[in-house]
Amino acid sequence: MITSSARVEKACLQFKASFLPITVLQITCYDWEGIEQQLLDTVHNAPPFFINLPVIIDLDKIKTLGTLNFIKLKEILLTNKMTLIGIRGGSDEQHLAAAMVGLPILIAGKSSAPEAVQQPKQKEDSAVRLTKLVTTPIRSGMQVYAKESDLIVTAAVSQGAELLADGNIHIYGPLRGRVLAGVQGNLQSRIFCRALDAELVSIAGYYLTKEDMLQSPTGDGMRQIYLENEQIRIEIL
């Protein structure tokens, strides 16, 4: 997943999947003077933070409006030394206007708008629903996938069994199988386990095999496995 090897002997290029943080500038209401004023105020609070900051303009919240003055918006961001990458969300009309001023249209990620509105009410509900719980042993050859959620296993995970989750994975029984957290690419996901005897641990595609883990810390206590600078770290909590 991470590298693609070229067949030519001397490789001149390589496509690599990479993740980097991007700031999303969400425009919530189209009041040009307000936008300008608030943006300048924010930048003045911490100018160094905004230098070369990659920015995407998110239009999900003002989809209903006509076009935006992208020329002015681009200008104001550039004069404040931010790097404008493109726009996401918005209507077809807005997309056209953005394309006219040379702004790429990125595929919109999941809109956070509805969540933000409903969050206070549904937070507890969804937390209960969003974690997959397994209490029976996961035997060799079995596969458990927690889609769009965390996974908690209270029983043993045998050699040859496989746990996958889009979120974090917690294992409270003996762990001898394969564990893959953040399989959709969530770099923040982590694995927590007691005794670590896994065949393989992986976070967002980065992995360690059993052989790689021989040097991992020994001793009692819960283990936490997480990603740091594209390296998997194992520490005792």
């Binding site: 029976t136 996961i138 035997r139 060799s140 050859g141 079995m142 045998s158 050699q159 040859g160 069994a161």
Partner: peptide, 13 residues
């Protein structure tokens, strides 16, 4: 032992 473990998985499903 590993094969038996696999069988136990099948027995439960």
């Amino acid at each position: 032992v590993r094969d038996s473990d696999r069988m136990l998985g099948m027995l439960s499903s």
